[in-house]
Design a protein around this nucleic acid. Structure first.
Lengths: 178, 178, 178, 178
DNA sequence: TATGAATGAGATTTCATTCAT
DNA sequence: TATGAATGAAATCTCATTCAT
């Protein structure tokens, strides 16, 4: 579980390399981790910004954004899961924060645009965490690309409905939840 | 991060005790962990079943169930976070599985009752993970009880809307996501 | 196995005492051990000398000596086994040496008296070890006093026969062993 | 004293290695012990069975068997002493039981063949323990090969005489022991 | 007289890292 | 470029002993 629990000895044993060899290519254990995920991390950041931009200018639907994101995550499955779930103890430990920020920004945008005014930051934080969790769990499931995209679409529908209900209900909150 | 990375040495250092002292009270590191969380774990299981029952017989609204759950979690915040996020390596490692099962069961029930027929297990799995994540993040935020309950209600509204959108959309799926 | 492997904690647990209490009665772990065996050790030394004396003046048969010895060992079974097999690490560690010396002396006497001249010290050493081992194993068996004495007598017969064969054979050694 | 009391720390200190280094070659302390003695243990078992067979078919005298055994033990002195006296706590702890069984079997054979009928198992047990003890003490003495073989022969003579006296005496037991 | 709690040293084991070759 | 061996620190756990009460 996680970078810190993964013993280099065991990693190397599985990879059929000697531990000594690792230190020829990488300065230390963290460097090894980082070189594995860095490209993916960079590209994900770029993609995130790009999608944020698209959404901002309403050039693409949310569903299309989700699909493009998932396609990327799927292709880099292993690295993504390392990056987002096993990076504690490395300099990528807080990488996911950047993603969360992007998602929160997007959500904030939605609330401003389609909701009735400002959105509560804490609510947005929770929703962002949930959404991200959704992506990650989709990734962890052993799905085919088709399955994955279909499920992604459904999660999108779910999120969309949730958002609408939330903004609609904020005016007459008490009515809605009963 | 987690039970396994939490060095007993460091724990004891912070607590101002020697590591040897711990072994007077607990057989080993895991026992220490378990004695901290066991009561809470048991009560949570009971509460989970109770709420499941209530929902099943429609004796209480989902919102009320959520509120009762959050109140419990809030009162046992520390133990709950240990139990659900730091238990890898202990015999509670798979405890959360039970909770997930309960949530999935409840979701399944909803889909059967209000949706149009059977629900896809994989979709339910993802939604359950997201919902749980929501609860946990609510817990991790440093909120007052009032704030917490208000946010919980909002998440409930979100989830409710998501569910409706999802079941409504299953008939004319392609329309919805565009 | 032995004094050093027996944890005081476990000893006390079995005895239903607290470890603290032990240190009220005994200076330390070794003292506890020694007070358990000391009386027995002293009496055994005395008995050993007495039997040696008796044999020396031919006031008693070897079989009677053996019987008296075994009766004593049997009554102090537990202490004897502690003293002779678990004393490593205590000041009784070399206690058994004294017994071996006595047995060797007795064997030496036999060889001088009934054999044809001086006896080889190394041979006597081995025979003494074997004889002692015999006594200890007799003790460890879960026998009744009667069984024990009968077996002791048989071992005596064995040893007697061995001795005779050995002394008889020393003149024409090569004949005997074929 | 024994495997369990032999601290790896001290072993390594004497060997001029760090304890960590040991774990490069051996999985744990027990593995270290086992790899030292395993070959010897296997060969001893084979030899034991072989000698048992020879005795059974009377292809070799007891004295020759003893000599062959001692030669083997002498060549593997260190490993044998580890195996038979220091193995408590390892998976070889009960190894010597196999040897005892072989010796008892051989003794049983003798009693059936040369004695007058069945032999008492408990007596045989004691005699086997004594005989084994003899072998071990022979080994522990710092003898030359010649000395060792000569002493072994003498112990053989002793045992032989003991056996004869015992079987002869079983008919008129009460006479003998006085 | 006895207990419960605590200590500190030392045991086995693991691990990232280094180094000679 | 790569290996096998080694190191030293730190982890969990055990144990004899001490001490306040």
């Amino acid at each position: 579980m996680g970078f810190e629990k993964a013993s280099l000895r065991r990693i190397c044993q599985k990879a059929g390399v000697t531990t000594g060899a690792v230190y020829f290519f990488f300065r230390n254990k963290e460097e090894l981790f980082c070189q594995i995920v860095s490209d993916t991390a960079n590209e994900l950041s770029v993609l995130g910004n790009e999608l944020l931009e698209l959404e901002f200018h309403e050039l693409e639907t949310g569903a299309d954004c989700d699909a493009r994101l998932m396609e990327f995550l799927y292709r880099r499955k292993d690295e993504i899961l390392l990056l987002l779930e096993k990076s504690a103890g490395t300099r990528y430990a807080s990488y996911s924060e950047e993603l969360y920020r992007q998602i929160r920004e997007m959500f904030s945008l939605f609330f401003q645009r389609f909701g009735d005014g400002a959105a509560e930051p804490e609510l947005i934080r929770i929703l962002a965490e949930m959404r991200m969790k959704g992506f990650l769990e989709l990734l962890k499931g052993d799905y085919s690309m088709e399955q994955l995209l279909r499920l992604t679409r459904q999660i999108g529908v779910y999120a969309d409905g949730g958002f609408r209900h939330l903004t609609a209900g904020q005016a007459h909150n008490t009515d809605m939840e009963n």
